[in-house]
């Protein structure tokens, strides 16, 4: 297994570099000037030239690429053109935040999606099943940023005029924590963070949860028909055990593949959700960087995203092997 992981990681290297080179080229071809934020009559053109020189933007593109590659390979991600600080420091702040948000979302997606899928499969063709199917379709077709805005408008805004609405169901519309976060107790910090996670993780995850529910439902229905489920019942196992132990683990196999597919989707969804909810994560870093043509930051964030996607797929693969002994068996023999 270790050898397999190692080989997969090696295989990912050319892919990641391909992506980075492509992004570099796109950035150079796309119109826009990182110095345009300084556009004001009080900023003399000579000053702009000097800034370009200080940033190395006056060099020809291929030189810029080689320079960037050199420092990148030596572990230096460079300096942000707009924030004027090492990109590594920015990423160190941002990556955990995005991982927290997308991790929570992922948990939500799979916990809720699978639970609903199971209920639907077990109660196939019931009214509940049809209602959930309809609901899932409705939610699935909502764009995450729009849903985010709606959540804010309703659960963080309108409810402030509804007197009977319980305090516990009013959620903060933005940020990761309250302004007095560092003054709170450990438990207070935990609940405060959780409170702030509610709306963004729902906005980010709910449409994927709907599709996970769809997949789980059909996968469960497929599995429930299998002979080994009848075997399990013939053993006298309670239905709970039959469904949650014997059926679910098998039904999860195709769902795990989804994990690998959803992570990149989550990361890209995080861009808009982070903007809407002022969540200080990678998504916003990349969004701002692209907006402001902060080339080195775009490159670095792209790199991080690419690596995260590769790792996510690898994790999905490993999980697949953990759940399915047949795959594990093949891998070990290879």
């Amino acid at each position: 297994m270790t050898a397999y992981i190692f080989r997969r990681l090696l295989q990912a290297i050319p892919l990641v570099f391909g992506i980075l080179t492509l992004v570099f080229v796109i950035l150079q071809v796309a119109p826009g000037d990182p110095m345009a934020i300084y556009m004001h009559p009080s900023v003399a053109p000579e000053v702009l030239e000097q800034m370009r020189e200080n940033y190395g933007l006056d060099q020809p593109v291929h030189i810029q690429y080689v320079r960037w590659l050199k420092s990148f390979l030596s572990g230096d991600l460079g300096t942000s053109l707009t924030q004027n600080r090492p990109i590594a420091a920015i990423l160190a702040e941002r990556i955990p935040n995005t991982l927290l948000l997308s991790g929570t979302s992922l948990l939500l997606i799979f916990a809720i999606g699978i639970a609903i899928g199971i209920v639907q499969a077990v109660r196939q063709h019931s009214k509940l099943d049809h209602a959930l199917t309809l609901g899932a379709l409705f939610i699935y077709s909502m764009p995450s940023f729009w849903l985010g805005l709606m959540l804010i408008l309703i659960l963080a805004y309108r409810v402030h005029w509804v007197e009977w609405w319980p305090e516990a169901l009013k959620f903060p519309p933005s940020g990761m924590d309250s302004v007095n976060y560092d003054l709170l107790s450990t438990w207070g910090k935990f609940t405060d963070r959780l409170d702030h996670l509610v709306l963004p993780s729902i906005a980010l995850g709910v449409s994927s949860a709907a599709s996970v529910a769809r997949y789980t439902r059909s996968s469960m229905l497929e599995v429930i028909r299998q002979d080994y489920i009848r075997t399990a019942r013939a053993k006298g196992l309670p239905e709970r055990t039959v469904i949650l132990k014997h059926a679910l683990k098998n039904a999860l196999l195709p769902i795990i593949t989804l994990l690998g597919l959803y992570l990149p989707f989550l990361f890209s969804g995080a861009v808009l959700v982070e903007v809407v909810f002022a969540w200080p994560g990678m998504g916003r870093a990349i969004y701002d960087a692209i907006q402001q043509r902060d080339y080195p930051t775009v490159m670095a964030t792209t790199f991080v995203f690419a690596v995260m996607v590769v790792i996510a797929n690898l994790i999905a693969d490993i999980l697949y092997a953990v759940v399915d002994p047949r795959i594990r068996y093949e891998r070990e023999r290879r």
Partner: peptide
């Protein structure tokens, strides 16, 4: 359920699919 697998057991035709693969 107390009867199944206890007083009365059953074996099936397809040994390939009657056991849970995971």
């Amino acid at each position: 359920r107390e009867v199944r697998g206890n007083a009365i057991s059953m074996i099936f035709q397809e040994p390939m699919t009657s056991l849970n693969p995971v």
